[in-house]
């Protein structure tokens, strides 16, 4: 639990860090779309190569990024197993009850795992290289057109950034509560799944109580510092596109073209 790195900012001086958050948001969206466009290994090769280049540019250590995957390993296994055993296909290698392993199943399971891994790494790379405040600013600016439809864009963005700020604090708190309860004889890793889930209740209740208290405190602190919504607010770090941002957009388009080209021409 202590090792959740997803959603955390990794401070470094790199081109990717300096990019406009809007570019990174749009880029992540393009990247996610590109993942679901085609189902061929050659495409994933292009995607992975692109991702790897961006990681190198971002100066975020690869090990640090991969650590984030640990948390989704169960989900990953579950999804792969599901695909592996339940996909009907032409060639059946093994059959038992409702389960079967087919060529399409293996292929699907592989794609699913690959996609999920690439998806997580790609989107966590965005949060590694963008501070929550920048992310919020970017989101707010990108969603501005929806404000006319009555969407509380600024508020949503602010909530997001606060949520991100409090992840490590609540994590630390969870650990403290766990240790306090372990000191009194509670155990969190014994018994079957249901027992484990039950042992989480006395952990979650105090955690929620404290989260509410924190929210109350924070709201007061924000009000005390004249926070009154997005109206009349200026920005310390206003978003202005630089030439590197335009270059990034062009790179993005080229990347998308490459993926589509590979998907159409080299069906593998």
């Amino acid at each position: 639990m202590r090792e959740i790195t997803i959603g955390q900012y990794y401070p470094a001086e790199s081109v990717i860090h300096r990019l406009d958050p809007r570019v990174k948001l749009v880029g992540t969206l393009v990247y996610i779309i590109s993942l679901f466009l085609f189902k061929s290994f050659s495409c994933y090769f292009v995607v992975a190569a692109f991702l790897f280049t961006v990681i190198l540019l971002s100066k975020v250590p690869l090990g640090y990024i991969l650590r984030g995957l640990k948390t989704i390993i169960f989900l990953l296994l579950f999804m792969s197993m599901f695909n592996l055993f339940f996909t009907p296909g032409d060639v059946v290698y093994w059959k038992g009850g409702p389960f079967q392993i087919t060529d399409a199943g293996i292929r699907n399971a592989g794609f699913m795992a690959l996609r999920l891994i690439l998806l997580i790494i790609g989107s966590s790379l965005m949060t590694f290289t963008t501070t929550p405040n920048q992310l919020t600013d970017g989101l707010e600016s990108l969603l501005k057109p929806f404000k006319k439809l009555g969407l509380p864009v600024h508020e949503v963005a602010m909530m997001m950034s606060i949520a991100l700020r409090f992840i490590p604090i609540l994590m630390e708190e969870t650990n403290k509560i766990m240790m306090a309860q372990m000191a009194r004889g509670a155990s969190f890793d014994e018994g079957n799944l249901i027992q484990k889930a039950k042992s989480l209740v006395p952990l979650l209740v105090p955690l929620f109580v404290s989260a509410f208290r924190r929210a109350d405190d924070l709201a007061m602190a924000m009000e005390a510092r004249c926070y009154h919504g997005g109206e009349g607010r200026t920005k310390m770090k206003p978003l202005r596109y630089q030439s590197r941002d335009y270059i990034a957009y062009v790179v993005m388009l080229l990347y998308l073209a490459t993926v589509i080209f590979t998907g159409k021409v080299l069906y593998l």
Binding site: T131, R165, L218, A221, R225, Y227, R233, K235, M236, K237
Partner: peptide
């Protein structure tokens, strides 16, 4: 009472408001 994830951004929060 710290809103931002970077010290300077937090100090800038009040003036922004």
């Amino acid at each position: 009472q710290i809103i931002a994830t970077i010290v300077e951004e937090d100090v800038g929060f009040g003036p922004e408001n």
